[in-house]
Each structure stands twice: as structure tokens, then as C-alpha cells.
Simulated assay, not measured.
Amino acid sequence: MHATPESPAIVSPGALKTSFSIEPMSPVIGAEIGNIDLTQPLDDDQYAALRAALLKHKLLVFRDQDISAAQQVALAQRFGELEVHPVFPHHPDHPELVMLGGDSKIPGRENIYHSDVSWRALPSMGSMLRCIECPKVGGDTIWVNMAEAFARLPEATRNALEGLIAVHDLLPAFGTRMTPEERESRRAAFPPVMHPVVRTHPETGERVLYVNEAFTTHLANFIEKNEVRFGFDFRLAEMDLLQHLYRQAAVPEYQVRLKWRPNTIAFWDNRSTQHYAIQDYFPARRRMLRATIIGDAPV
């Protein structure tokens, strides 16, 4: 059944015990899922239908889900093994949950377009973020369909990107949170990694623009793929290209914007999206818990 904003589809694959509704949030990304109780474990049909919805819409939003930290971990684990983040503070009882958000003295710093942990050799498959506390006004999050961003690049640009390799690094974004000793130890544990500039989604086959301004530092093989006259041509041309690719995430036509409420859960596919947590509410508080599902090596 085709879903429209005016008439959301009901998904009932197989013998689904509790059908849920799917209401698209924008033409290109995002859907609100209704008529589902996430305090209860997902059965096989619900899991399969939600995974299919995630692949189609790339972002799933669930409202009014008053679940515990343990239930959030169990729900996220249904979709794969969870990582433990090496920098963010963790929930005291569940290290798989990172605690996000500043306070009245320290603002949050997630206001940059990024794909979670692209600096890992195995970046995440998806992230599941639950709102614990948020301001009445402000603190929205934007998600971007990066498959759409790639598809709508000019053909000549798409062709020029084939075979290019980007370097992703933990330290530029997180190094300021660390002591010199911590930076040294994190560098040893998490050296820069290389991923294709355009990755192929392992489940849908979509081609996805996979560089982000938070973690992508440079191109490993730009000079091999492009003719240059002088060294400064190479560096400036590489920087110009990267800046152009970064800016694709900021195109409103590829985006959806979510207004948070307590007990809202957002579940997104990190392989095909980027997101930006808007920091317009400081010194009000916004507290979140995030579980991140381990993915595979981009190809």
C-alpha cells in the first residue's frame, strides 16, 4: 500500500500481532510510526516490517514511548550488536548508551552535519536516540537523505567521484574534549580510516555520498584521479571539492526536521543519512540517550 501524508499506510506483513501506521514526514526522508508499543519486545514480523520501513524512509520516529534504559538497549540490540563509544559519557548501568546534551554552563556540540562514528573501520549501521528532556522551544534535529544528495549531483560530478577515497578521523571533532595523554591513547586505538567517497548501501544498493564535515578530513587519492599543474592546485582543488560535497547535506530539499518531545525516539540509518542537532536553546537543557548499532565496512 502506498503511504501519503494524508492517508498513512498500515503495514501488516505476515501475521503481525500489532499493525503499525507509517506517516511520511517529508517527500524524501523520514516517517512517523504509530500504533506500536516499544515497551514490548518486537516479534519477528514487527522487526522485519520496521527494518523494511527504515530502509525505505531512512529515519523512523516514535512518539510517546516511555521506555527504560534497559528497554532501549534491548530494542536497539534487536537490530544488531551495539558499540561502546570511546569519548561520550555513558549511562551508569548501560555502557552501550551514551548521554548527549550540555547543561546550563556547557552547550552541546553536535551542531554539525555528520554521520555517527564514520571514523570507525566499521561505521554504524544505525542509531537510536531517545529524548529524556528537551526545551519547549528549540533543540530540533535535522536529518538528510545522502542517497538523494548523490543522485541529484550533476552527472559529471558523480562520475568524477567514482574511485575517490576519503579519510575519516576521530580527533578533529573530539580532540578538544581530551587531555594530551587521552589524545595520544585515542590516536593509537582509533587511527584515521579510509572509506569510499561514494558508498553502496549494503541492503538497498543505493549509491550514497559518504563524506561529512565533522569527521572527513581529506581525500587520500585526489591527485591520482585528477590532473594538476602545481602542488597548490592539488590542495586547493581538493579542498574546493570537499567543501562542495560537505554543502550537499545543507540542501533543504534533502532534509526533514524533527521537533522533539520527551519520550520521542528517532531511529535512523547512518549508512545513508547525515544529521545536525540544532543548538538554539542554550542555556536550556536537552538530554538524550543514544544507542549505536555496529555496521560494516563501506564499499
Rank of each mutant, 00 (worst) to 15 (best):
T4W: 05
S7F: 14
S21W: 02
P24C: 06
V28S: 12
I29M: 04
D44V: 13
R51D: 12
K56R: 15
L59K: 03
D64G: 00
A69L: 01
Q71H: 07
Q71L: 09
L82V: 06
V84Y: 08
P89I: 09
V117K: 00
A121R: 14
G126W: 01
G126C: 03
S127P: 04
M128Y: 02
M128C: 13
L129P: 01
E133W: 05
C134A: 14
G138H: 10
D140V: 03
I142W: 04
N145A: 10
N145G: 09
P154M: 06
G163A: 04
L164G: 04
T176M: 10
M178Y: 00
E182D: 12
R186N: 01
A188R: 15
A189C: 02
R207I: 06
Y210E: 00
N212Y: 12
A214N: 05
T216M: 02
H218S: 15
I223L: 06
H244R: 15
Y246C: 05
Q248Y: 04
A249R: 03
Q255S: 08
V256H: 04
W260Y: 12
W260N: 10
A266F: 07
N270S: 12
S272Q: 02
Q274G: 08
H275I: 01
P283N: 12
R285S: 13
R287A: 11
R287K: 14
R290P: 04
